[in-house]
């Protein structure tokens, strides 16, 4: 009934990427998505099921120069409780706090959330506005090859990324925010967490004397992928956040997104919420 022929739990990164070489591998990390999807038959497990839990190189949250490195296996709970993240990346803590439930936060990993590439993925919006990069490993020849890719270019569709079948996500790198950095995240829903976003919004930038620069805006659940909003960012860049600007930017945001109707909301409502919440967040940022 299944083509699954092999279970493999490597203990080093080299073993893992070596195993990935033939591409016919399903990767298991936290399992919060793969388990139910495969049980329900929505995802077919390939020739090899590779459990990456025992690879030490994929764990840990560390400060490396001017970057915070979060290992792919870091769970949502580990991230939201880690002192480095709490100190430097409160917007990521905020998003983690709205992620599913305690049980799922305890199991789900940042690597898994990135590779799932859900348009509504809760950690992805803050990672996008924090200019995060994805770190990938593979073994094209006999040697471990590692490279990074901006997260903003990583997603190509629902559940689809630019990661090749032979690559493993080993972590994310997030530049340390500079002085004056502000960031906000908002997930629209009726519950604190156990909820798929109707929409989510992340805004970040550097606020100096009431003027926002390096503006980053990302929206969740309004497109096939979590997405940066170029027009909205452009409209914000270098602007003083007064009421008129905020209204103008919110209107641009509403026009920029192209959401769909689904069981959670209509496109019309999503656009309205992008407008209203963008306005609300920018007002908060203005007061920061």
């Amino acid at each position: 009934m299944t083509e699954l022929k092999h279970y493999f739990a490597p203990t080093s990164l080299d073993q893992a990427v070596e195993c990935l070489k033939d591409g016919d591998v399903t990767i298991l990390a936290g399992g919060t998505d793969l388990t139910p999807q495969s049980q329900a038959g929505r995802v077919k497990i390939k020739h090899t099921l590779m459990n990456i839990r025992h690879i030490p190189q994929l764990t840990g949250i560390t400060l490396e120069g001017r970057e915070i490195h979060i290992g792919a296996l870091a769970t949502i709970t580990e991230i939201m409780e880690h002192p480095l993240v709490r100190q430097h990346l409160p917007v990521l803590v905020e998003a983690c706090d709205h992620f599913a439930s305690d049980q799922i936060r305890n199991a789900g990993t940042i690597g898994g959330n990135i590779c799932n590439a859900s348009p509504a993925g809760d950690t992805l919006i803050p990672l996008l506005v924090l200019d995060a990069s994805v770190e990938l490993a593979s073994m094209p020849e006999a040697k471990l090859y590692r490279h990074t890719m901006p997260l903003s270019t990583f997603f190509v569709g629902p559940g689809k990324t630019r990661k090749s079948l032979c690559e493993l996500v080993t972590g994310v790198r997030i530049p340390l925010p500079e002085q004056g950095h502000v960031a906000r995240f908002f997930k629209l829903g009726t519950r604190p967490a156990l909820d798929i976003s109707t929409i989510s919004i992340g805004v970040a930038g550097t606020l100096r004397d009431g003027v926002l620069s390096n503006a980053r805006v990302a929206f969740g659940a309004v497109a096939p992928t979590p997405t940066r909003a170029a027009q909205t960012e452009q409209a914000l860049e270098g602007q003083r956040l007064d009421a008129a600007t905020i209204e103008k930017v919110a209107a641009i945001a509403r026009d920029e997104v192209k959401p769909i109707d689904d069981v959670r909301a209509t496109a019309w409502y999503r656009k309205e919420m992008i407008h209203n919440i963008t306005k609300r967040i920018l007002s908060h940022v203005a007061q920061a």
Binding site: T190, R191, P192, D195, I196, V263, R264
Partner: peptide
């Protein structure tokens, strides 16, 4: 039936 699951059929949870 479009939402035969607890993800989209929303029972009230404790915080609500």
């Amino acid at each position: 039936m479009k939402n035969p699951n607890f993800r989209d059929y929303k029972l009230v949870t404790a915080p609500e």
